[in-house]
């Protein structure tokens, strides 16, 4: 889920940027400092949205830069347990498929792709169902549910586990098929 949060902070404006418009410089510096950082409570910082208030600069001992108290709103991406997400498969390996859900990636383990037994086709780079003819390849769009979450300071260490073994989840084409099947059943 994406959230907009209001944050109070101090921003350091170096002297060689005094001539430039303050708000723009402040936004740029804040973006440089915090973009891509992960906070356990807030999630991943995507970007500074708006500088709401910026105070007068203060010069402290030993540094020529101006320190401004600043209130700004920022956009965060916070994956939550049991959240339903839609994303694109970006990589398929023998142990599962990586799904891009916004600015982070999630992993669907092979055991969580379908109820069917799954084989990995290394040539195609695809996961194939044994009995059903379901296949999962790079570029497919899927809907999944977040079932495991470990947010770390570094985004490379953050792990998001997804499942698609629930009604209404899976590759979007499978969901369509299921729906049509259910409709036919209802008619007859």
């Amino acid at each position: 889920m994406y959230l907009v949060s209001k944050i109070e902070d101090t921003v350091r404006i170096p002297p060689h940027r005094f001539e430039e418009p303050l708000q723009e410089v402040a936004a740029e510096i804040l973006n440089k400092n915090y973009m891509g950082k992960i906070d356990k409570k807030m999630g991943l910082m995507v970007t500074v949205k708006e500088i709401e208030d910026i105070g007068v600069g203060k010069v402290i001992m030993g540094d020529g830069a101006a320190y401004h108290d600043v209130v700004f709103t920022a956009l965060f991406f916070k994956p939550e347990l049991h959240e339903i997400v839609v994303g694109e498969v970006i990589e398929v390996t023998d142990f599962g498929a990586f799904v891009r859900i916004g600015p982070m990636d999630g992993l669907v383990h092979v055991s969580q792709v379908t109820d069917d037994y799954i084989n990995y086709d290394a040539k195609r780079g695809a996961l194939l169902g044994k009995e059903s003819k379901k296949s999962l390849e790079e570029g497919n769009h899927v809907r999944g549910r977040i079932v495991a979450l470990s947010l770390k300071e570094k985004s490379a260490e953050t792990k998001i586990g997804l499942t698609m073994r629930q009604p209404g989840l899976g590759r979007l084409e499978w969901i369509k098929e299921e729906k049509e099947k259910a409709k036919k059943k209802g008619k007859s």
């Binding site: 170096p14 002297p15 060689h16 005094f18 001539e19 010069v59 540094d63 020529g64 830069a65």
Partner: peptide, 12 residues
Amino acid sequence: GARALQLSMGAK
């Protein structure tokens, strides 16, 4: 002192 430091750090 503060102003000289700012100038040395690139203030106009």
